[in-house]
Simulated scan of single mutants.
Amino acid sequence: MIAAASSRRPRSVPLLPLENGDMLTLTEFLLRYEDMTGVKKAQLIEGVVHMPSPVRIAHAEPDGVIQGWLFTYAAEHELKIFPNATLLLDPENAFQPDAILCTAPQPGGRVWLNKKGYLCGSPELVVEIAASTASIDLRDKLRVYRRLEVAEYLVWRTADQEIDWFVLEDGQYVKMKPDRHGKLRSRVFPGLVLDLAAALACDKARVLASLRR
């Protein structure tokens, strides 16, 4: 279970700014992150602060394709999609994945909201667009998601023009293989289908068409 980040400092003691590479507890990380203005993305990965570079088109366009694909599916299946939401996983990990698709947060569910409104738990599906962070997404983050039993994990490696969709089987992630039509199909969400060629070409119409076949 995740301990609530509720400790407070005396107002006379200023908070230090977040710095890339800082080693912090979850409580300290959230206090500093909430105190900073102008910082749109920071993550705590195994106790270490990661602050990514500005977003280039190589990341932004695939991100838009994924958001549209998941939004369309979520709208038709009464699910929740959370783009770029901070996800509290355990006392050393607070990620900000590009997209989360899950059932509605509720006490006792796979995901829930803490008192400050942060999403906690293990969502059914997490997506990362890896333009410059593939080594982190496929190593450190993958290990944490696997350990905390996130059911499915999709990583779009833009530099390599590859999409990896992992499914949790007996405590291990297994990379899903496309069917003979070049499509990947979620095992958790029936009908959530991704046309690999269409996605990699950022062909939005074809990506959405796969959801309706």
Score class of each variant (00 low, 15 high):
40 K>H: 11
7 S>K: 08
86 T>F: 04
103 T>S: 12
87 L>S: 12
23 M>N: 02
91 P>I: 03
162 E>S: 02
54 P>F: 08
105 P>R: 03
123 P>L: 09
104 A>M: 12
152 E>R: 11
100 I>L: 10
88 L>A: 07
60 A>L: 13
196 L>N: 05
211 L>G: 02
176 M>K: 08
132 S>C: 02
32 R>Q: 14
151 A>P: 08
73 Y>P: 13
114 N>G: 04
148 L>S: 09
33 Y>P: 03
163 I>C: 13
128 E>T: 12
82 F>V: 04
133 T>F: 01
110 R>K: 06
113 L>C: 05
181 H>L: 02
36 M>E: 00
82 F>R: 11
76 E>R: 15
39 V>G: 01
184 L>C: 04
125 L>M: 13
89 L>P: 00
16 L>P: 02
172 Q>N: 08
177 K>I: 07
3 A>V: 14
116 K>V: 01
146 R>N: 14
187 R>T: 15
59 H>N: 06
162 E>F: 02
116 K>Y: 06
121 G>E: 12
113 L>R: 11
41 K>H: 00
72 T>E: 14
195 D>V: 15
202 C>V: 01
151 A>I: 05
135 S>V: 08
168 L>I: 03
67 Q>L: 15
129 I>F: 05
91 P>L: 04
132 S>D: 10
72 T>R: 10
60 A>Y: 08
108 G>L: 10
25 T>S: 12
57 I>A: 09
132 S>F: 02
41 K>I: 00
9 R>M: 05
187 R>I: 13
165 W>I: 02
102 C>D: 15
200 L>E: 14
86 T>K: 13
82 F>K: 07
31 L>Y: 01
207 V>A: 14
20 N>E: 14
182 G>K: 10
137 D>T: 08
10 P>V: 07
98 D>E: 13
194 L>G: 01
8 R>H: 10
28 E>G: 00
23 M>Y: 03
172 Q>F: 08
187 R>D: 09
165 W>M: 05
11 R>N: 11
19 E>V: 07
171 G>D: 04
179 D>C: 11
186 S>R: 08
75 A>V: 02
10 P>G: 11
33 Y>N: 12
105 P>V: 07
58 A>Y: 10
20 N>L: 01
25 T>R: 00
96 Q>T: 04
131 A>T: 11
55 V>W: 03
168 L>E: 12
199 A>I: 09
202 C>N: 05
161 Q>I: 02
145 Y>R: 10
194 L>I: 04
114 N>Y: 07
18 L>S: 04
128 E>K: 13
166 F>S: 02
153 Y>H: 12
82 F>M: 14
10 P>I: 06
17 P>K: 05
47 G>P: 03
71 F>V: 01
